[in-house]
């Protein structure tokens, strides 16, 4: 027998491994789940940009022009693209969660299909928003 105490062995054993990584076979639900949280935190930080936009409008035309210039810079547009997709992804996946909360679509087939619908839906909606802005 090894000299390890039971406490040491218990400490080395993964008790509740993270959903992504070597301990579980890959499945779309776990990837979408952590993406839901990451986009949520990103959107929470993005409210700083939202509030800055509105405050610049309330301050006056010069402040608004400065903000608009930042928002239309390459970095600003990349951030806006990221936030728009994050919002629409979080919205689509949020609806998926609400459906589960109501007690529906728990079968593996429906869980996977819903996951892909969220991925496709969020990309289509993001494309629709940016087409609306530039057409």
């Amino acid at each position: 027998m090894s000299a390890k105490s039971s406490a040491e062995r218990a400490a080395a054993r993964p008790l509740s491994p993270f959903m992504l990584g070597q301990y579980y076979r890959f499945q779309i639900s776990s990837l979408l789940s952590i993406t839901h949280r990451i986009t949520g935190v990103g959107l929470a930080l993005g409210t700083l940009f939202l509030a800055a936009w509105l405050m610049s409008a309330a301050t006056g035309p010069a402040a608004y022009q400065r903000f608009a210039a930042c928002a239309r810079s390459p970095i600003g547009l990349i951030l806006l693209l990221g936030w728009s997709w994050s919002l629409l992804y979080h919205l689509c996946n949020g609806v998926r969660h609400l459906v589960w909360d109501a007690g529906y679509a728990f079968e593996k087939k429906n869980v996977d299909a819903g996951g892909w619908a969220v991925v496709i839906g969020s990309v289509v909606l993001t494309a629709a928003v940016w087409l609306t802005a530039y057409i």
Partner: peptide, 19 residues
Amino acid sequence: VPLSLWFVFSVAHYRVADY
């Protein structure tokens, strides 16, 4: 759900970059 969809499509539709 409805408020966010209204918001992003409104901001995209009205050219709000203009003061």
